[in-house]
């Protein structure tokens, strides 16, 4: 496939006291230019580790990243630090969860923004200042000249996150990786930030890989979804199709555990137990102990990822024999 981004057998292992922590255990993922893909999964499933691997942000002295990360045909895992640095910001950029910690609290906001424009977009001092002021107005900040001289704590959380997003886009990247960009924000602010992201996506025609654990956000923003469990992608497909009729029991369980309109007074379905730990070796299907539909044969090796409909894949032995409940 000639997509924008292609992950093949991506593995990330952190060196730790208890041995290697295998956070990502063979992820295959395709992303077309301009496409919105959501990566969802429970805490600890390896979403952030995958996202960081794409940008080459792991500390190589303590982390083993193997497999293949191809971006526009170029193998990123073979790039040196200097090449990676020029790739970041122009090829792909990343936005993190907590907007507060992404800025230096001791430097004036305007200078930090201008600095980012100088280093990424290569603007000179004056042009960078202009660009920064332009960005403030774009965010609807009244009196940009005064705000230029203020410090990060004088900005609201939603404003900071939108600023982070715009900064990440300064180099006009083809891919934006957003790792839970709204988890720290209130719903009304989250809605504004997501809308902002949506508008930029349309305007710049860039692809967005959105990491989240909120199925609602997935449905609102992304055309495709990838569900991650214990370091692997267990299901991918069009968002509407996957949420409407999931092919993997884990996806079904996630959807059923969500409180939704009309669920009042009913028991929510729960997923018993815990996902396997990062140190545990594979034996059979990783979801087996928690799966409602498991058969004894599910312990025979890892389930391969199989076609589950047009543009859909599921890593379940029983993909074709199950019909699972989704949400309307």
């Amino acid at each position: 496939m000639s997509g924008l981004l292609s992950l093949r057998g991506l593995r990330v292992a952190f060196a730790g006291e208890g041995g290697a922590a295998m956070a990502v255990r063979g992820v295959d993922l395709e992303l077309e230019g301009g496409e919105g893909l959501a990566l969802v999964g429970e805490s600890g499933s390896g979403k952030s580790a995958t996202a960081k691997a794409i940008l080459g942000l792991h500390d190589m002295s303590s982390t083993a990243v193997t497999g293949s990360v191809r971006f526009e045909g170029r193998e990123l895992l073979e790039l040196g630090e200097a090449e990676l640095r020029s790739f970041r910001g122009r090829g792909a950029s990343m936005v993190f969860q907590d907007p507060g910690t992404s800025f230096n609290p001791l430097l004036r906001m305007g200078e930090q923004v201008a600095e980012a424009f100088r280093s990424v977009a290569g603007l000179d001092r004056k042009a960078a200042r202009e660009a920064a002021l332009g960005l403030f107005s774009r965010l609807g900040i009244r009196d940009p000249v005064t705000r230029y001289a203020q410090y990060p704590h004088e900005f609201s959380g939603g404003m900071l996150q939108r600023m982070m997003i715009l900064l990440a886009l300064a180099g006009r990247p083809r891919l934006l990786v957003a790792d839970e960009p709204t988890t720290a924000l209130d719903v009304t602010v989250q809605a504004q930030v997501l809308l902002f992201l949506e508008e930029l996506k349309e305007e710049l025609g860039m692809a967005v890989l959105l990491v989240t654990h909120d199925m609602g956000i997935v449905a609102e923003t992304s055309t495709r979804i990838a569900v991650m469990y214990a370091g692997r992608i267990v299901e991918t497909g069009g968002t509407a199709e996957v949420l409407g009729s999931p092919a993997h029991p884990y996806t079904e369980a996630l959807l059923e555990a969500m409180p939704r309109p009309g669920s009042r007074g009913t028991r929510l379905a729960t997923i018993l137990g815990l996902p396997p730990g990062v140190y545990e070796a594979d034996s059979g299907c990783p979801f087996f102990p928690r799966c409602r539909h498991a058969l004894a044969s599910c312990m025979d090796g890892l389930p391969p990822s199989v076609e589950a409909g047009p543009g859909r894949k599921s890593a379940c032995f029983r993909t074709h024999s199950l019909s699972l409940r989704g949400i309307a």
């Binding site: 009304t188 809308l195 449905a219």
Partner: peptide
């Protein structure tokens, strides 16, 4: 503003209500 998995009341399509 609640993102809805059912897609029905999408705030992204109905921007005015935000």
């Amino acid at each position: 503003a609640i993102p809805s998995p059912a897609g029905g009341s999408s705030f992204l399509r109905d921007r005015a209500s935000l």
